[in-house]
Amino acid sequence: MKRRTFITSAIGAIAGAAGCVHSWQQPLHTGAALAFGTTISISVANADDELAQRAIAEALQAALAVDRLMSIYHPASQVYQLNRDGVLHKPDARLIEVLAKATHLSDISGGAFDVTTQPLWRLYTEAARAGGLPSDEDRRRAQALVDWRQLAFDADHIRFRRPGMALTLNGLAQGYAADQALAALQAHGVRHALLDTGEFTARGQKPGRQPWVLGVRDPRDPGALVTTLSAQGCSVATSGDYECSFTPDYRHHHIFDPASGDSPTELASVTVVAPTALEADGLSTAFMVMGWERAKALAAQLRAVDLMVVDKQGRSRRTAGFPGHA
């Protein structure tokens, strides 16, 4: 369901399962796979061709494993099984890790981030298929099933405390996949890489000792950029009302404010820079709900977190540490 919100202007489009091109006489190795309903890709600058290709293959497998584990659509995934049965026994340790991080994000954001918004997604999706929006009564009924504090989990089981609840990790899984893939690359000694799982992680430099450069798209013009940024030693994620909108005016979309049961109204997009892709992924969703002032205040309390927002009127604002590109 999620997104392709950046243009990787540093390397261009990547196609095929694997390849190698040379830039400034330094090898850039690439690999790609299908996951999260899109194409994920990894680019590595490394002098050892065999090592680079092996590292890319293992990194892609690590990302694919996250998709298989956390998809809300695949019957074999543990999240699918939890939503179907209301309880999951012997959960994978990676799922517990992500839920623990989700709980922390919910806590620090005052509930703006909530992995139990899936009932609202289902409701709005079904209404859109019927050509409209849900009634206020149906919305309130779905909203009553949204509460991250009613999700219980430990190493032995995960369960919902209320019947009818459901989980989505679409605001974390792609970021976590990038982090897992990065760990696989680093286990092979890879120092220079750009990973794209829908969220971006950059380490080191691209060939020619140049920074990895990303472009942030305009939320109202898919062919235009709001800005470009140099991504060095960080992860970057964008959430936007255009990613999946239920109405042409972008008023109702896939991001939900748990407090209202509807979409937040202030911002069109939020781009977050953070130390990990999971943080960037989750915070971009939370900040969309929180709005500029609250998001800016929370980012100031977090290590190495910065953001840029574009509001519904097309105005952009950014925190002082948000990276630019000369």
Score class of each variant (00 low, 15 high):
D154R: 06
D154G: 08
D154S: 12
D156F: 10
H157T: 11
I158M: 03
G164D: 12
G164H: 08
G164K: 06
M165S: 10
M165D: 07
L169F: 10
N170H: 13
G171D: 11
G175K: 00
Y176R: 00
A181L: 01
A184D: 13
L185D: 01
Q186S: 03
Q186G: 07
H188E: 05
H192Y: 00
D196P: 07
G198I: 07
E199D: 15
F200V: 14
T201S: 14
Q205I: 13
R209W: 08
R209K: 13
P211A: 12
V216L: 11
P219Q: 07
D221G: 00
G223F: 02
L225D: 08
T227L: 15
L229C: 09
A231Y: 10
A231V: 14
G233W: 04
G233E: 04
S235Q: 11
S235F: 06
S235M: 05
V236M: 05
V236Q: 00
T238W: 06
T238H: 05
G240D: 07
E243L: 14
P248R: 00
Y250C: 11
R251G: 11
P258T: 03
P258M: 02
A259I: 06
S260Y: 04
P264W: 05
S269W: 02
S269R: 01
V270D: 03
T271F: 05
V272L: 04
A274W: 02
P275E: 04
P275C: 05
A277K: 03
L283W: 05
A286N: 05
F287G: 03
V289D: 01
G291R: 10
W292Y: 08
W292I: 10
A295M: 12
